[in-house]
């Protein structure tokens, strides 16, 4: 089977008008308005297969939301093509819209003054969900997301997180085959973040739905996605396995030392760059191939109470990708 999401050289520009500050600036822009095309996504291509969960990472303003909006048919591409389930998204065919869902932050698909149940019933009718399916799915969602206490409260009285959970539930009631989740865990407490992750993973296993997920919480991505796409400044900078990303972008491992006596950082930096030094704990960066050798030299030379060898935390690996600095420089800065 071929990919169910295909993105082919997508570009999306936004039109924004420029304004200089001050009254004169306002006046000038009133008379002659200058428009500028801001490229948000530049030549991005990828494919996603059925059943995949893909993490979509990138710093603020990288173009993640824009890409998801094109894939869900909200935006027309400036150039390039998108195909999702064999449909062209922006044509917004009813069959297409019934097979996808998009969850965006606090976008209100819930009626503010009514209860979530009221809105769910409307969704059921709009998406032609049979009563049996509706009851089953709502039951599952209610249990996993602990919705019972909030189902019959007016939405405007719900807390941020409660509202987010209901948004998520409302977006899944029609059993979509593709989930576009734009920061679905934003505003949730740690327990609920885990519940949402479990739910998404479970949904993916049971239905074989494809999931595309953006999040600034690395834990979401680690828990859910094997494959990640990294976008920065509108360009795709990485597409592959999360572990490959770590291997490629984090050539160093972290040597964690627990020292027996205080030692000056200079003395440690002889072996490898010092990443962090606080009292009796220190962290050194050792290239993958030479970890063992460096470790044994340190053990011979320095009073070490305990030693551990770890991978770089994913946050840092990805964070470093965004900084677009050669890793070595970043290391030097950290050492200072």
């Amino acid at each position: 089977m071929s990919a169910i999401i295909q993105l082919d050289h997508l570009c999306k520009d936004y039109e924004v008008h420029q304004k200089e500050p001050g009254l004169m600036g306002s006046l000038r822009s009133f008379v002659r308005r200058k428009y500028q095309l801001v490229p948000a996504v530049k030549d991005v291509s990828f494919e996603i297969e059925q059943g995949e969960i893909v993490g979509f990472l990138g710093p603020n303003g990288a173009g993640k939301t824009t890409t998801l909006k094109v894939l869900s048919g909200l935006l027309y591409p400036t150039s390039g093509h998108a195909r999702v389930l064999g449909f062209t998204p922006h044509e917004r065919k009813a069959d297409f819209l019934k097979s996808i869902t998009m969850v965006m932050g606090q976008k209100q698909q819930l009626a503010w003054d009514m209860t979530p149940s009221d809105s769910f019933l409307v969704n059921q009718a709009i998406y032609d969900v049979s009563d049996a399916d509706f009851r089953r799915r709502l039951g599952e969602l209610t249990e996993m997301l602990e919705l019972q206490p909030v189902l019959n409260k007016p939405v405007r009285k719900l807390s941020l997180g409660e509202r987010m959970k209901c948004e998520l539930a409302g977006a899944l009631l029609h059993g979509p085959k593709i989930l576009f989740l734009d920061e679905p865990t934003i505003g949730l407490d740690v327990n609920m973040q885990q519940a949402v992750r479990r739910f998404v993973a479970d949904y993916n296993v049971r239905t074989g739905a494809a999931v595309m997920l953006t999040s600034h919480y690395m834990a979401d991505v680690e828990a859910l996605a094997e494959r990640v796409l990294v976008i920065d400044g509108g360009q795709l900078v990485f597409d592959g396995n999360l572990s490959a990303l770590v291997a490629e972008r984090a050539p160093n491992k972290v040597l964690k030392l627990q020292l027996a006596h205080p030692v000056s950082p200079e003395r440690l930096s002889v072996f490898a760059p010092v990443r962090m030094m606080e009292g009796l704990t220190a962290e050194l960066l050792a290239p993958r191939g030479k970890v063992a050798e460096i470790a044994s030299r340190i053990l011979n030379d320095v009073p070490v109470a305990d030693i551990a060898i770890e991978d770089m935390p994913i946050e840092e690996v990805v964070g470093r990708l965004f900084q677009r600095k050669p890793p070595i420089e970043a290391v030097r800065e950290a050492a200072k």
Binding site: A111, D113, M114, D118, S119, L121, V122, A125, I126, D128
Partner: peptide
């Protein structure tokens, strides 16, 4: 074109909302 059932559900929803905003 939504189904009649969908129309009825949406009407009920908005009727409910309007009642709150007399």
């Amino acid at each position: 074109m939504p189904s009649l059932k969908a129309l009825r559900a949406m009407l009920a929803l908005h009727y409910g909302i309007s009642l709150q905003y007399r």
